[in-house]
Amino acid sequence: MKEARYTAPETLDEAVALLASANGSGRVLAGGTDLLVQMRAGTAKPGLIVDVKKIPEMTTITEKDGSYRIGAAVSGAVIGEHEGLRKAWPGIVEAVNLIGSTQVQGRASAGGNLCNASPAADSVPAMVAAGAMVTIQGPKGRREIPAEKVNAGPGRTTLAPGEIVVSFTLPVRPRNSGDAYLRLIPRTEMDIAVVGCGVSLTMDGDRCTAARVSLGAVAPTVLLVEDAGKALVGSTLDDGALEAAAAACRAACKPIDDKRGTIVYRTKIAGVLLKRAAAIAAERARSH
């Protein structure tokens, strides 16, 4: 087997240049919890590995005027210990922390979760519901796109060759906002989501003034379900509004049938999780 070359550049410019020089055989290495498994299985055969964990912008969490920026390679463990994020975005933190075991958390990143492009990736629905903007740097410079625009299908992204996800920027959090992420798995730990649901909303008294809903594992990519958010906005999150949002979730599902869940089951569960996640997000919004 031809050995890959390992590099660990300290700047983004260098990392982008290295990837560009690899003629498509370069791979970004963040926590390696997907990439190393794929290399071992022979499904990934990189000629060049670009370890991005020496790039400060990608490994730090910063806050500016109430907006958080999470470096794409920050590990789940570090995100879970961040007091500010836990307060402002508990749904993102719980979603990231659901990825794998303690050992996996020590390395796995939100950037890797997004770029691996599994439809069942746990942190992605939470990021999409939050309205996270993804900063991308590549040979043509920098651009920003919403989190829901990064995945193109199972294992596929919209990133151009040589592009690197640098960070996630979260919007300024209005008062009385809350988010939540729930997934259904057959076990209590260490499994892949049958359905995942992220909800982020803002309340004004009893009334919901803003809401975003996202579903995972029910379509080739994580979905932003705009109609579900619309069904919640203006309501008091009463049963009628919740059922309308759940119906929008079910309508958005295009799941597969597999050993983890049938199409019928996944579709039904999407609505159930929406209602439960919305209740948790609303509770958090009241106390935020």
Binding site: Y6, A8, L29, G31, G32, T33, L36, V37, I49, D51, K53, S75, A77, T102, Q103, V104, G106, R107
Partner: peptide, 12 residues
């Protein structure tokens, strides 16, 4: 940090 030795490269 607790990690899996099998999921980290020696070079890292």
């Amino acid at each position: 940090r607790l990690v899996c030795g099998c999921l980290m490269l020696g070079a890292e």
